[in-house]
């Protein structure tokens, strides 16, 4: 007994005169990314307004952070994005060798998460808690939300690894390539968000 066949709608955008541009992944993931980034955009604006109202408190809060940890995490995430881009390229070309790249990007995600938890623990040890002040509230909200997104993206990477191993000896189906692009789109969004959060939270007040 076979499952009903589900055909994925063609994800193309017409550009007229017989040419068509394919939407990476599928349109739905872009809806999700748009909604998610809109919420973050509102948060960024609110953060900037609070910073304008309390510049001294924000500068003092920023002094409690370890800039090196933020910088290392930025490099780690950018590296992971480059590795994921490699996965997409290889997937589109239909060649193998994506597993090591996926493991590398996943390892970057784990390093990022561990460093973030270390940083939180360090701050909590110093008595800086989510409710301590406006800056610490924003720090935990923005980095916490971002970490949740990173965990979701990591789950996506694990899914690609599992599916890749299962389908190792089969020809890669178009649906699988679309899934790679969906996960990559989400992962790049996580990276992009961090590239805004890092300067805002770690560098902005100085």
């Amino acid at each position: 007994m076979s499952a009903p066949v589900v055909t994925r709608p063609s994800a193309t955008v017409s550009e007229g005169a017989g040419t068509a541009r394919r939407v990476p992944g599928e349109p739905g993931v872009w809806l999700l990314v748009l909604l998610d980034m809109s919420v973050f955009a509102v948060l960024f604006v609110a953060f900037l307004l609070d910073r304008r109202n309390e510049p001294e408190a924000f500068a003092a809060g920023q002094a409690d952070l370890t800039l090196v940890l933020g910088l290392v995490n930025t490099l780690v995430l950018v590296t992971s994005s480059a590795l994921v881009a490699g996965v997409v390229r290889r997937s589109r070309a239909g060649v193998g060798g994506t597993e090591r790249l996926l493991l590398g990007s996943l390892a970057c995600g784990v390093v990022f998460g561990v460093l973030k938890v270390v940083e939180w623990a360090h701050l909590l040890d110093k008595g800086v808690e989510p409710d301590t002040g406006t800056y610490s509230m924003w720090f935990f909200v923005l980095t916490g939300l971002h970490l949740v997104h990173l965990l979701i993206g990591s789950l996506g990477l694990v899914t690609l690894l599992v599916i890749g191993r299962r389908d190792a000896h089969r020809e890669v189906a178009a649906d699988r390539r679309a899934l790679v692009e969906v996960v990559a789109t989400y992962w790049h969004m996580v990276d992009l968000l961090w590239l805004v959060i890092f300067p805002l939270v770690y560098l902005g007040a100085s």
Binding site: E26, G28, L31, D131
Partner: peptide, 24 residues
């Protein structure tokens, strides 16, 4: 996809335990 978006937008609500002011 809309349901996935709903899930992601609802999730931060669980963090309200830690905050008395601000967006959470």
């Amino acid at each position: 996809w809309a349901n996935l978006s709903v899930a992601i937008l609802l999730l931060p609500g669980a963090a309200m335990l830690f905050f008395h002011t601000g967006p959470v």
